[in-house]
Simulated assay, not measured.
Amino acid sequence: MTYHEAASESPPEGSSDSHADGENYFISMTDMMVGMLFIFIILLMSFALLFRQQTDVQVRKTHVQSKKIEVAESVGRELDQTELRIRKRLDEIREASELRLRLLHEVRNQLSREGLTVEISPSGDVLRLTEAAVLFPVNHFALLGDAKKNVEKIARVLSRVLPAYSMCPRSRVQFACRNSDQASVETVFIEGHTDETGNDDQNWSLSAQRAASTYRELIAVAPELRRIVNRRDEEILSISGYSSTRPVDPSRSAAAWGKNRRIDLRFVMDTDPTSGLEDVRALLQKMRAAIQELKGRPE
């Protein structure tokens, strides 16, 4: 073998090492790409899992929020219904007050035509029989002279006016009266009063006796008054005594004492404002329960 042949058969210097280095570089790059892809897959799976968890939490939150909205809407509907009921009750109370005022004005006007002067209280619920109408002697409860005649006038006027403002009577006698769904008179209290002189214990019985004397005279003159009833089918006339606890003139004089020895007719209408309050209380209880339910639901 000649020199040239030997030289041609020998590999070039460094060719074997360069090929190995190329292969090693390619393998390293592949491993790194595979590793990066693996890391990317892990990150992608982690993100997918986190997204799934967040979605589940959001779904649960949406469900809870929907329940809360449902409860709030239910309470809102209850509020609207209660407001309507309360508004209706207020209208009924206002109607009853206006009806009572018309009644008192009608009685006063008719008594005025009879030559009798009476007063309507500032509150619009009491017809005050002044000393000019019914005056009692000191320490006496009997109706005497003009006082008796004036009570007779009052009886006749009440028998004419009251039926139109009251429920239909129990008797078969037909005359104008209120329907069951209308405001009407519930009670007419004949209230007896004394002045502040004398013994307080005696004044209590004396005031009640004055009211009783007036009641007896009223029904003696107009017995049909006992047939006028309220919604519960009870007689509307009643009596009460207040001693000297409700003076119309607080000054301590003989003139004031004469004014305070009197009879008042207090007209109470058949309307119950507590029913509206019961609606409010029931609604508050429902709202309290709803709030507790909302607090008990986790976010």
Rank of each mutant, 00 (worst) to 15 (best):
64 V>F: 14
64 V>E: 08
65 Q>L: 12
66 S>P: 00
66 S>F: 07
66 S>C: 01
67 K>Q: 14
67 K>S: 08
67 K>W: 02
68 K>E: 06
69 I>A: 11
70 E>V: 03
70 E>H: 12
70 E>S: 13
71 V>P: 08
72 A>G: 02
72 A>L: 02
73 E>S: 01
74 S>E: 05
74 S>M: 08
76 G>V: 00
76 G>W: 03
76 G>H: 00
78 E>R: 11
78 E>A: 01
78 E>S: 11
79 L>E: 13
79 L>T: 01
79 L>G: 06
80 D>Y: 05
80 D>L: 13
80 D>M: 02
80 D>F: 09
80 D>A: 07
80 D>I: 04
81 Q>L: 12
82 T>P: 08
82 T>M: 13
83 E>C: 02
84 L>K: 13
84 L>S: 14
84 L>D: 12
84 L>H: 02
84 L>N: 12
85 R>Y: 06
85 R>C: 05
85 R>H: 09
87 R>D: 12
87 R>L: 09
87 R>S: 15
88 K>D: 11
88 K>V: 03
88 K>N: 13
88 K>Q: 13
88 K>W: 10
89 R>A: 15
90 L>G: 00
91 D>C: 08
92 E>G: 08
92 E>D: 13
93 I>V: 15
94 R>K: 05
94 R>Q: 11
94 R>N: 13
95 E>T: 07
96 A>L: 00
96 A>W: 01
97 S>N: 15
97 S>G: 03
97 S>H: 10
97 S>Y: 03
98 E>T: 06
98 E>V: 06
99 L>P: 07
99 L>H: 06
99 L>F: 05
100 R>L: 02
100 R>N: 10
100 R>I: 06
101 L>G: 05
101 L>I: 00
101 L>N: 10
101 L>S: 10
102 R>Y: 00
102 R>M: 07
103 L>H: 03
103 L>G: 09
104 L>E: 04
104 L>W: 05
104 L>Q: 03
105 H>T: 08
105 H>P: 05
106 E>Y: 04
107 V>W: 04
107 V>T: 10
107 V>G: 09
108 R>F: 00
108 R>V: 03
109 N>D: 15
109 N>F: 08
109 N>K: 03
110 Q>R: 15
110 Q>V: 02
111 L>I: 05
111 L>W: 07
111 L>F: 04
112 S>F: 08
112 S>Y: 11
112 S>E: 12
113 R>W: 02
